[in-house]
Amino acid sequence: MNIFRLAGDMTHLISILVLLLKIYATKSCSGISLKTQELYALVFLTRYLDLLTDFISIYNTVMKLVFIGSSLAIVWCMRRHRVVRRSYDKELDTFRHYFLIAATFALAVLVYEKFTFREILWAFSIYLEAVAILPQLVMLQRSGNVDNLTGKYVFFLGAYRAFYILNWIYRYFTEARFTRWIACVSGLVQTALYADFFYYYFISWKNNAKLKLPA
C-alpha cells in the first residue's frame, strides 16, 4: 500500500461522502445521474466478488463493504426515498447506459487476464468504471449550471483516479513484476474523461465563478 493508493482510496471515499451529504442535507438528488450511480453499484458488485473468498486485509474488506453499501444506498435513495426521488431529473438523465454495460461486457469477454468467470467480471467492472461517469457528465452539460456539492463530487471522483495512476507509476518502478495493463489503460481512459471537467472546474474556481459547462 503506497501513499498514492491510500490518497486515491480516501478521495474516492470523500467523493461518496460528499454525495451522501448532498442527498441527506438537501433531501434532493437534483443534478445527480441515477444511471451513473447504478453503473457504480454494478461496478462494485461485479468487482468485489472475492469479498467472501479472498481475505487481503481488514482495510480492503472494510472499504469494499463501504463502497458496495454506499452505492446501493444511493441508488435505493434515488429510486425509493419518497422525498429524494421527487427531485430526480429523469428527463435530463437520458444517457442510454445499457449500451455502456453491453459494450464493456463484450470487451471484457475479449480482453481479460484469465478466462474465468470472476476474471471476466473483474475486467468488466474495470471497463465499466471507466465509462460510468459519462451519464453524469452528459447530465451536467445538459443542466448547464452545476451545484457546488455535485461539482465537488465529480472533482473528487476524478482526483481518485488521478491518484491511482500515480500509484501505478510508483508500483511500476518499485515492484519487479507489476504489470496491470487492463487496470492501467482503463484508468487512463477514465481519468481522461474528467480532463475537460477539470479544466472548466479550474476555470470557474480561478474566476471564482459558478461552474458552467458548455452545452
Binding site: 500500500m1 493508493r5 482510496d9 487481503i56 482495510y59 480492503n60 487476464e113 496491470r180
Partner: peptide, 10 residues
C-alpha cells in the same frame, strides 16, 4: 497490508 495478492487494489 499483505499486498501481493492479485487484485489487491479497490
Amino acid at each position: 497490508f499483505s499486498e501481493g495478492k492479485y487484485h489487491d487494489e479497490l
